[in-house]
């Protein structure tokens, strides 16, 4: 196998000797540089009326450590964790069922999931607010079923935000879980069935334990994904359910305090990178386990 790879490289190496300068230029200038500038600005001094002036101070970071912002951070993390757990709990059995269907049925399911996943948060927020509204929402259905006296509005509320986030992340979680689940050898659950395990028992004693690492990675990735949600807490929630992402935008655009927004963004970045590092460590231990 190793010699095969070496052979492949030697054949390919003869072609393409140029370092792709043009994409390197773009990624460095329009991705790395902005992050560096943002890091610098997070230490700058804010000037009322203008944007900022160069300085090196920790005021922006220190400001973050007051009960108000720490409360927001705690709320954002708890909200994202709840969304991650719910979305994964729904997505895992769902993905497992999809991967056991025919290839054709899988394609249909994937097209619909991708369509929902790619939809703008704005559109999802608008659609859910319509569905939860008094005039055209689901409460009208409950009324006509006799479950409710008169239609009511279910938003803005914390549960509406949570529903929206779960809605947003289920397709994402499905797509993260799809590769490992579709690569699961179907003979493993079949073997459990032959040995007397019911479908439920097979799912809990074989399928879930076999995929515990992908499940952990999914939890973390969905957590990061929902941490970045920005419009849903605004369209479906009260100001009390605004997340860190909303406050970053608020500071940047409406308070024109770019240094403070930058400091919060850097903080969010550090949390995210730590999570990604944990995920890739999980992946690494997994692949080591495989090669043994």
């Amino acid at each position: 196998m190793r010699s095969g790879v070496a052979l492949k490289r030697s054949v390919l190496r003869k072609s393409g000797k140029l370092i792709p300068l043009y994409p390197t230029f773009f990624l460095v200038v329009f991705f790395l540089v902005p992050f560096t500038v943002m890091l610098a600005v997070s230490f700058f001094h804010r000037v009322e009326g203008a944007f900022f002036e160069p300085a090196f101070e920790f005021d922006n970071y220190l400001r973050f450590f007051d009960p108000f912002y720490l409360g927001i951070l705690q709320f954002s993390i708890l909200l994202s964790m709840a969304a991650a757990v719910l979305a994964t709990a729904i997505a895992f059995p769902f993905t497992y069922m999809i991967t056991r269907m025919s290839r054709k049925a899988q394609v249909v399911a994937l097209v619909l999931l991708l369509a929902v996943l790619s939809l703008s948060e704005v559109i999802i927020g608008f659609s859910w607010s319509t569905l939860l509204s008094r005039t055209s929402g689901i409460s009208n259905l409950f009324v006509s079923l006799g479950l409710l006296e008169k239609p009511t509005s279910y938003y803005p509320s914390l549960s509406a935000v949570l529903i929206g986030l779960v809605y947003l992340s289920v397709p994402y979680a499905v797509l993260v879980l799809y590769p490992p689940l579709s690569r699961l050898d179907p003979e493993l659950p079949e073997a459990a069935r032959m040995m007397g395990a019911s479908p439920m028992r097979t799912f809990f004693t074989i399928v879930i334990p076999l995929l515990r690492r992908p499940i952990m990675s999914t939890l973390i990735l969905v957590f990061v994904f929902t941490l970045g949600a920005y419009t849903l807490p605004q369209t479906l929630g009260k100001p009390s359910s605004w997340t860190l992402s909303v406050h970053i935008t608020d500071q940047a655009i409406f308070q024109a305090n770019l240094p403070f927004a930058a400091a919060m963004a850097i903080f969010l970045l550090v949390v995210t990178l730590a999570m990604i590092a944990v995920t890739s460590m999980l992946d690494k231990t997994k692949s080591e386990g495989d090669t043994k």
Partner: peptide, 27 residues
């Protein structure tokens, strides 16, 4: 490294990238 750099924008919460780009273009 280039490949990872290409993957990075999508791994981070977009609000971070957005703020970075805002500050960059303002500058």
């Amino acid at each position: 490294a280039l490949f990872s750099l290409g993957l990075a924008p999508f791994m981070l919460p977009p609000v971070i990238t957005a703020l970075g780009l805002l500050i960059f273009w303002v500058t």
